[in-house]
Nucleic acid binder design. Structure first.
Lengths: 347, 347
DNA sequence: AAAGTTTGGCAACACGTATTGCCACCGCTA
DNA sequence: TAGCGGTGGCAATACGTGTTGCCAAACTTT
């Protein structure tokens, strides 16, 4: 039924080894006409080498794994997309696992990927304990953390400039003359969230503004959480601006403001973080600190491949720079839809 | 360095075969204390079976492939997500390939997945020619098409009730008293687009409304295309409603209306198709025909697994029912954000 | 012509697992 | 004591590939 290497060899009148030589521009040279016969036989039989057998022999699967906390969050979806792109460009296939913010599933995926002999692994840890850490460490598979750090891990982490970006966003709100600037953040135990709050604080402090006691909201990333945060934090008119730690949350905030009859940016200005595509199409479009998704994807892949070659190299990774994309939600003129998601065009 | 089955066997004082028996509740029985020794040795050494070797021996990889036309479109992202969920529940890992509407990449992914010996494949074909079809057919790997049909293929296709849904959406706009109903559709050569246009026509015909000549716009799915369509089709005030063939496009239309100073739903009512999560958070939230993503994912996986067991079975697949989710864009009361993406709660 | 060198190719093995043929041993019955 | 069924376990093989040791023949050099 299935056609194997030996079948090709028989038809071409050679040995199986020669077929390998041809397919891999093998370690041995092959006479031109023999090569032609082999290629003809391959074509005629429709032979496709068995990648599994190849992986077993080579001890390489050309597969990378990526475990993200929540695929329904466009930030992770876009990040995953770009990593996949970069991996594909290097002839690697990416396995994507969605932990759905559940440590059990996260562990299950790490486990599955290790069993499948991935050559390397990206982990965007779900918040809370990372049960799979010991297994991951002892597996010896090279891995790196993305977007968040893993407490107690020896692996490097590729992070955005969370603090600097949050600071820049808040400064931009202050530059619009806003002074009562709230902060809607992520879970208290993940680094990007705490760093972004820190950046917000820095900007306020530098401007000599003292935030009121109740001006920080902590909760999940995600649209629904932002929606709740908007209702809980902004209903009473105490604030004239808000820095939101993620675009997803900000979209929920926009929706909440609509229901509360609060106008954006007139009554409350918004600046957020991430730079997902959807931020360019909301009403008003979101002013946001854009993360360089494509570059992050490429960097992440490069970093991991390097680590696969020299596992013990000590690298210190620079935070990825983020860039302000000014749109309508902060009070800036709202650019036409679809343009602002190409910040490289406008800059 | 790496620990193999033989190492476990040595430590447990048995043969490698017995280790297999224990791990798989093997074809042979194992004495209780032997089993205990083996398990202890596995634990002590941190042994993980090599999935590649296992796949080679079993001739099964427990892997399914999915090739989608455009991962940056949330519809496909959500669909992929649900398929992955369903596959995971059946202990299958899903490989996801993003063709980016490029036939070359589509072919490359199909090729890669076949080389990796996937046990089955889902294909959401990019529009245009499907070059990889011969290779796919002759590979003998069971596969099914999703969302769109593949011309000339013998594989079954799982489709939504595109015509009926489009018809219902248009009828809903008519029920709001709108009579000048435009249609923004997808590419002319994909089935869901043409079917949705057909449904729109049916509804108009039944209501005795004759569409004007220039009331259908054809183009890409996706936000940017919708944005363009909005500007091109709705700028002159000829229409008081529009049926949009996808939520993604509709989000672009909303943005275009905002820039044109046209109010939604007051001046132009919108109903669209797909039921992606983002549709519940726009301003106003979108009235849409929701596809049952989770059910489609489960059905798709079940269908493919069935086909893997009995490759030659002839099944005819019912179209998946879609359901109207009424929100603000058509003129219905706009429900609170985040609620309407749980249509099962409200119905 | 003899010796060295290059070319082209084949047989054999290894990768790590699942499974099957076979066997030793124990306890029971006639 | 001989026969017999059942239990537990082992050696060996196959899965399909990449690579290496080895060799024959052709070609080059002395």
């Amino acid at each position: 039924m299935v056609v194997r290497r030996a079948d090709v060899a028989r038809l071409a009148g050679t040995s199986p080894a020669v077929v390998s030589y041809v397919l891999n521009n093998g370690p041995r040279k092959v006479a031109p006409d023999t090569r032609a016969r082999v290629l003809a036989a391959i074509e005629q039989l429709g032979y496709r080498p068995n990648g599994i057998a190849r992986s077993l022999r080579m001890n390489r699967t050309m597969t990378l794994g990526l475990v993200v906390p929540d695929m329904s969050n466009p930030f992770f979806a876009e990040l995953a997309h770009e990593i996949e792109e970069a991996a594909f460009a290097q002839n690697y296939t990416l396995l994507i696992g969605n932990a759905a913010e559940d440590d059990g599933r996260q562990t299950a995926y790490v486990h599955t990927f290790l069993a499948r002999q991935v050559d390397g692994l990206f982990l965007v840890p779900a918040h809370g304990p990372v049960t799979c850490l010991p297994e991951l460490q002892r597996s010896g598979v090279p891995w790196i953390a993305l977007d968040r750090t893993v407490p107690g891990a020896v692996a490097p982490a590729l992070l955005a400039d969370n603090r600097g970006g949050a600071r820049a966003a808040t400064e931009h709100l202050l530059a619009h003359g806003r002074r009562r600037v709230a902060c809607i953040a992520g879970p208290q135990d993940v680094v990007p969230a705490t760093e972004r709050v820190a950046g917000w604080r820095e900007a306020l402090a530098e401007a000599g503004v003292r935030p009121s006691g109740m001006s920080v909201w902590h909760g999940e990333f995600g649209r629904r959480a932002g929606y709740r945060a908007g209702h809980e934090l902004l209903a009473h008119g105490e604030f004239d601006a808000v820095f939101v730690a993620s675009d997803e949350q900000a979209l929920g905030v926009l929706r909440a403001l609509l229901e509360l009859g609060i106008r954006c940016p007139d009554d409350v200005a918004i600046a957020s973080f991430d730079g997902i595509a959807a931020a360019g199409y909301s009403t008003p479009a979101l002013t946001t600190m854009a993360q360089p998704f494509a570059e992050m994807g490429r960097t992440a892949v490069t970093l991991l491949l390097d680590r696969m070659e020299t596992p013990d190299s000590v690298v210190d990774i620079q935070p990825m720079p983020v860039s302000l994309v000014a749109r309508g939600s902060c009070g800036c003129p709202d650019p036409p839809g679809g343009e602002a998601d190409h910040p490289e065009v406008t800059s």
